[in-house]
Design a protein around this nucleic acid. Sequence first.
DNA 1: ATGGTTGAAAGTCAA
Length: 262
Amino acid sequence: MTFTLATWNINSVRLREALVSRLLTEEMPDILCLQECKSPVEKMPLEAFRALGYHWCVARGQKSYNGVAILSKLPLVDAGDHDFADLGHARHVSAALENGVTIHNCYVPAGGDIPDREQNVKFGQKLDYLTRMRDWCRADTPKKAILVGDLNIAPREDDVWNHKSLLKIVSHTPIEVDHLNALMEAGAWIDVTRKDLPEGRLYSWWSYRSPDWEAADKGRRLDHIWATPDIVNAAHGSRILKAARGWLQPSDHAPVFATFDL
DNA sequence: ATGGTTGAAAGTCAA
């Protein structure tokens, strides 16, 4: 069985229902993981996606903030969620496919503007969230698992438009990268996007604050697809649909894709 | 060090 999976921080699924439908229609991923739905589950426009063949959905929502959903053409079973930060945020949900693969859809806290937990509680919450995810992987080593989402960290020098100028910018500070790497080691996670595309700059997010995002191209790779070693060799065909960042009234994130032959 | 833009929701807060 082969399936294609995509992950996309949609920044309001209700406002951008038409963009989600466009992605589902044009790209036809078997599974689409959304973050920042900014909606309770009962107000997510799931009927529109069902009409396009996405009959299964596992989601967690809340009013105004956060919110994650896994839309699928393939049967899914809800496999639970974790509130890693104990903040009552809907930032994680997981689902199991019939082939025994578990998908974890994550939205790691952005962490505020100041990269210092003494001055900025949000930064501490981000680091603590990653530590709790690490401990969860240590306690329960994931198998046949895929972890996707907006991890809000661009770990590599070629995951940002300028490594040196971003070293003190939240999303690319060494302490965040250390926390992300500790999580990867704890679960033996492999970065599927970089397995497939090891060379060159890759971005999945361009700020709304840049007047000409495409010409400036000051991007960061914040959105990731990881897999455990037992299935990573099944992964191929990674890509980032940069064009979606240029759609009308876009999300500031572009969708990231990978295909698995399992 | 600051500003720039966007979304939800009706204040600002979060990103």
